[in-house]
Design a protein around this nucleic acid. Structure first.
Length: 334
DNA sequence: AACGGCCTCAACCGCTCGGAT
DNA sequence: AATCCGAGCGGTTGAGGCCGT
């Protein structure tokens, strides 16, 4: 059982890379592309393990890497994202163009962490050391972002499967390509199968579920007054971004929450149940439904237990929405 | 100039995850 | 189901540079 370390072989070099090694690696990737890192060193004539080659390429040699000083905007983005995501450097790096996770991690540890500490802000919690106000704000946003990341990961996996299926079914699917409908206007139509585009055609991108963009772009935060089978999918909330947040009252309390964009719905477990207010999701085969907000479920659950006052429910959610808005307008961190 | 402590960041290590067999 | 393997992630290390004395 277990696996041997990739650098166990005697004779493999470790430590700093020489310019000659860099050139060999770049030449090889330029000709053959990256991938199959384990086999790459032998083919490229390098006495390095594949892992070392991969890191060298990703963190240093890749041509699209942005190097040099971090801008103020980048610093602010890192701090805000760290407040949301914690030490998830790769997730943070996806929001900073051409910066590597390693670079961001190093910059956080050597600069930003210290700066926040000097400012009297706990770099782990992002709260002022003597003031806990605002913790709910970040906590809730972190839940949304966590759900988004979980959902995106699922969508990427689905997308990969789709691509593989596309390749294998390419010839059979050409005639069906135009039957794909991802528009919310088509949510009520029925399509018999998941129809896939031909290989030569531009593939559909996974739906964008970027909560951060939604906040920064001014998402439409909606509380559905009364959800019925007739009014929900036929009149989905309109948003300036691709994303809308939906709160679902049921029997005088909020029993679910969800995010919806053009083609995808993420919701709490009880939001996703087939029988809320009589909605049957099986009637909407083109809608990707994802259970994402498992953590928010706990929040909703605890609310119902400790408070059965309708007005307080509204106040509670209004507070959350205001917190999100104030975060967009001006972060409490700065 | 020499020394020692501190800082930076490229690179490594250990681990997890997902796909293939 | 068990195992192997490639890839990726986050934490840590240590060589080299910087700076104060």
């Amino acid at each position: 059982m277990g696996r041997s370390p990739c650098c166990e072989k005697v004779g493999l070099k470790k430590g700093p890379w020489t310019p000659e090694e860099d050139q060999k690696l770049m030449d090889y990737i330029e000709k053959n592309g990256c991938g199959s890192w384990r086999a790459l060193p032998t083919k490229a004539g390098l006495k390095r393990c594949g892992k070392s080659c991969r890191l060298r390429w990703i963190n240093y040699l890749r041509p699209d890497i942005k190097r040099g000083k971090f801008s103020l905007q980048e610093e602010q983005t890192i701090i805000q994202l760290h407040a949301l995501l914690g030490n998830r450097w790769s997730a943070i790096a996806t929001h900073l163009a051409n910066r590597t996770d390693n670079e961001i991690k190093n910059y956080w540890n050597t600069h930003l962490k210290k700066r926040l500490t000097k400012m009297g802000i706990d770099p782990n919690t992002h709260k002022p050391k003597s003031n806990i106000f605002g913790s709910a704000n970040l906590s809730h946003m972190a839940q949304w972002e966590k759900a988004r990341l979980e959902a995106e990961a699922r969508l990427v996996r689905e997308s990969k499967k789709q691509h593989q299926q596309i390749i294998s079914n390419n010839n059979n699917n050409i005639n069906n390509y135009n039957n794909i409908h991802f528009s919310p206007n088509n949510l009520t139509t029925t399509t018999t199968t998941n129809v896939l585009p031909p290989l030569q055609t531009k593939l559909p991108s996974p739906p964008c579920l970027d909560v951060l963009k939604a906040w920064q772009g001014g998402a439409n935060w909606s509380i559905m007054p009364k959800i019925t089978k007739d009014n929900f999918f036929d009149n989905p909330p309109i948003s300036t971004s691709n994303l809308s947040l939906i709160m679902v009252p049921n029997n005088n309390s909020i029993t679910g929450a969800g995010l919806i964009d053009n083609s995808c719905l993420i919701g709490t477990e009880n939001f996703m149940e087939n029988n809320i207010n009589g909605i049957s999701y099986s009637n909407y085969p083109n809608l990707n439904t994802i259970q994402g907000f498992t953590h928010l479920d706990h929040v909703l659950g605890s609310r119902e237990e400790e408070d059965d006052n309708d007005n307080n429910d509204n106040t509670y959610w209004n507070t959350i929405l205001k917190s999100c808005t104030s975060f967009v307008d001006g972060s409490s961190v700065f």
